[in-house]
Simulated assay, not measured.
Amino acid sequence: MSVEKLVLPLPGGLKVHVEHHCFDPSFETVLLVNGALATTASFGQTIRYLGERLNALCFDLPYAGQSRQHNACDYALTKDDEIDILMHLADRFRPAYLLSVSWGGVASLFALARGCASVRRAAIASFSPFLNAAMTDYVTRARDHIAAGQNLQAAQLLNDTVGRHLPRIMKLYNYRYLTRLPRDEQDQVAFHVDQILAMKPERYLDEFRRIGCDVKFVNGDLDEYTTAADVRRLGDYVRRAEFATIRGAGHFLDLEGRVQQEQMRTVLCDFFCGERETYTPHACIANSSKPQRLPFEVPALS
Rank of each mutant, 00 (worst) to 15 (best):
M1C: 06
V3T: 14
E4G: 07
V7P: 07
P11N: 15
H17L: 08
H21T: 13
C22W: 02
D24S: 03
S26G: 09
S26Q: 12
F27Y: 15
L32E: 14
L32P: 04
N34W: 00
G35N: 04
L37N: 00
L37W: 00
T40S: 03
A41H: 14
Q45L: 11
Q45C: 07
T46C: 15
R48V: 06
L50W: 03
R53D: 06
N55R: 13
N55I: 14
A56Y: 09
C58M: 11
L61M: 13
P62R: 02
R68N: 05
Y75L: 02
L77R: 06
D81W: 10
E82Y: 08
I83F: 01
M87Q: 14
A90C: 13
F93S: 04
F93T: 04
Y97N: 09
V101T: 11
G104Q: 04
A111E: 03
G115Y: 00
A117K: 15
S118T: 15
R120P: 09
R121Y: 06
S128H: 08
P129A: 08
L131M: 15
Y138C: 01
T140V: 02
R141F: 05
R141L: 05
H145L: 06
I146H: 02
A147P: 07
Q153T: 07
A154Q: 13
Q156T: 07
G163V: 01
G163D: 00
L166K: 04
I169W: 14
M170R: 14
N174L: 05
Y177T: 14
T179M: 05
R180F: 06
L181H: 04
D187C: 07
V189H: 00
H192Y: 10
D194G: 14
L205H: 11
D206P: 06
V215I: 01
V215G: 03
K216R: 13
N219D: 12
D221L: 01
T227S: 11
D230G: 09
D230F: 06
R233N: 06
D236K: 14
R239W: 08
E242D: 08
T245P: 00
T245E: 03
R247A: 15
R247K: 15
G248V: 12
G250P: 01
Q261K: 15
M264C: 15
V267G: 08
T280W: 12
I285M: 09
A286N: 09
N287H: 05
S289G: 05
K290P: 03
K290S: 10
Q292L: 12
S302E: 04
